[in-house]
């Protein structure tokens, strides 16, 4: 018949410590090295953070768009390049109309010299109306 010995508290503690030490030793051997991919990601983060800091050294909330980006965004909001071209043409036409005095005011004899007033009020298109211009194309 097998007799069972009773262990003292100290013996039990020592045994438990020894067993835990064996488990810790097994776990310590396990440490896997970090993968190359992980090291690459960590380094990429380091460079990204450094570059963001170079662009924005005072921790501004968001990097500002370059001028071309802002223009592109504004154009998109307006409806793209065709809309912008139409808007430009309309603006120039409005500017010319607003800048040029009303034609009726520049009647000869009322506001001054006929030739000077008309030349100032309208672009000179007379060369386009001659026969030579029409032939030359």
């Amino acid at each position: 018949m097998k007799t069972r010995t009773t262990k003292t508290g100290t013996e039990l503690d020592l045994r438990q410590d020894a067993e835990l030490d064996a488990l810790f030793a097994a776990a310590r051997q396990e440490g896997a090295a970090p993968s190359t991919a992980l090291m690459g990601r960590i380094l990429a983060d380091a460079y990204d953070v450094a570059e963001a800091r170079e662009i924005d050294p005072v921790h501004a909330p968001a990097p500002s768009l370059p001028a071309s980006g802002r223009i592109r965004r504004a154009l998109a909001a307006l409806g793209g390049w065709p809309a912008a071209a139409t808007l430009s043409a309309a603006t120039l036409a409005g500017l010319w109309i607003g800048y040029a005095p009303p034609f009726a005011v520049d009647l000869p004899g009322v506001t001054g010299d006929e030739e000077t007033t008309l030349a100032w009020a309208m672009p000179d298109i007379s060369p386009l109306l001659t026969e030579d211009a029409a032939v030359d194309g």
Binding site: A27, G31, P34, A46, E54
Partner: peptide, 27 residues
């Protein structure tokens, strides 16, 4: 050095510290 823009310092810190942190997290 890294804060001053030195990339080699970032590499050295990564090689030195990341494996230890990875071991801790793994365990």
């Amino acid at each position: 050095l890294y804060a001053g823009g030195d990339r080699a310092a970032a590499r050295a810190l990564t090689l030195r510290l990341a494996p230890r942190i990875h071991a801790l997290a793994s365990r």
